[in-house]
């Protein structure tokens, strides 16, 4: 049954000039990688991934890119928002001995953070994390990540913090120096496309968290399908393996807009 669960906005953390975390009081049963549909029953309803979950709180890290995201990140603390879900598939815990590499770019770092915390909670220790952003002030959770027992590589496009350059280029370098078993990534699609190219024909297992325009979130409207396989990202995704992506010719090329028409990826944005 589709039902919306009310959550009180306990706090809003301004993470970067454009991105805020809504701290919601209440428990949400979900797995890393899954998403929810968030509404205020006034402005609209949009899909988001969690950036953290705990016993009595959960968080959505949202970049203000348009009407809904601007409105919802400015609601007064104490107001109520409504969630339905969780929807979609999720990341699954790998073998304990695996060497893992995580790549987060822009607001894709939000779901990567949840996955990272999940892995650490489950005792994984062999983790490298490449956290990229356009510039230092757009880097998410930089100090939090520094406190974790992981190999952290920070990069910014403009070199204002960490390595100067794009995350896929940094990934290429990292991969030439050490071997990994599994890669997980979330971020702008053109970044993920390059990550996919960098992995190329290496035997590295890989998982990509994709975004598509979602209207229903429940597999009926057909708005979020990936060509040519007809994968509904809201049901069979949003986590897609690098192997499957080999045959998705729209990956990194085009997406669909609110009208359902094709829209070519223009530059590195949030989607």
């Amino acid at each position: 049954m589709i039902t919306w669960k009310p959550f009180t906005v306990k706090d809003i953390i301004r993470e970067t000039p454009s991105t805020s975390t809504l701290v919601l009081s209440g428990k949400m049963e979900m797995q890393p990688g899954q998403f929810i549909m968030l509404t205020d029953f006034a402005t609209g309803e949009k899909p988001f991934a969690f950036s953290f979950v705990s016993e009595n709180e959960c968080g959505l890290t949202i970049k203000a890119v348009g009407k809904f995201t601007s409105a919802i990140t400015r609601v007064p603390v104490g107001s109520t928002v409504y969630l339905r879900g969780p929807y979609g598939n999720c990341f699954t815990l790998p073998g304990k001995d695996k060497k893992l590499i995580l790549v987060g770019g822009g607001c894709g770092t939000a779901p990567m953070r949840l996955w990272l915390r999940h892995l650490l909670q489950h005792g994984y220790s062999n983790i490298t994390f490449i956290n990229g952003a356009r510039s230092a002030d757009e880097l998410l959770y930089a100090s939090e990540f520094r406190s974790y027992p992981i190999e952290l590589i920070t990069s910014t496009d403009d070199g204002s913090e960490g390595y100067a350059g794009f995350t896929p280029d940094i990934l290429r370098e990292v991969l030439t120096n050490s071997a990994f078993d599994i890669l997980y990534t979330a971020g702008p699609e053109l970044m993920m496309k390059k990550v996919h190219e960098v992995i190329g024909s290496t035997p590295l297992e890989s998982w990509f968290l994709l975004e598509r325009y979602m209207k229903c979130g429940i597999g009926i409207c057909g708005q979020c399908t990936l060509d040519p396989a007809g994968i509904r990202l809201c049901i069979e995704g949003p986590v897609i393996s690098g192997e499957v992506l080999n045959s998705i010719d729209e990956f990194g090329t085009y997406t669909r807009d609110a009208y359902g028409g094709r829209k070519v990826f223009a530059g590195i944005g949030c989607t």
């Binding site: 409207c221 399908t225 060509d227 040519p228 007809g230 994968i231």
Partner: peptide, 11 residues
């Protein structure tokens, strides 16, 4: 229902 993209129809 599902009839927006060609791949949705094929599916």
């Amino acid at each position: 229902v599902m009839g927006i993209s060609y791949s949705g129809m094929l599916k």
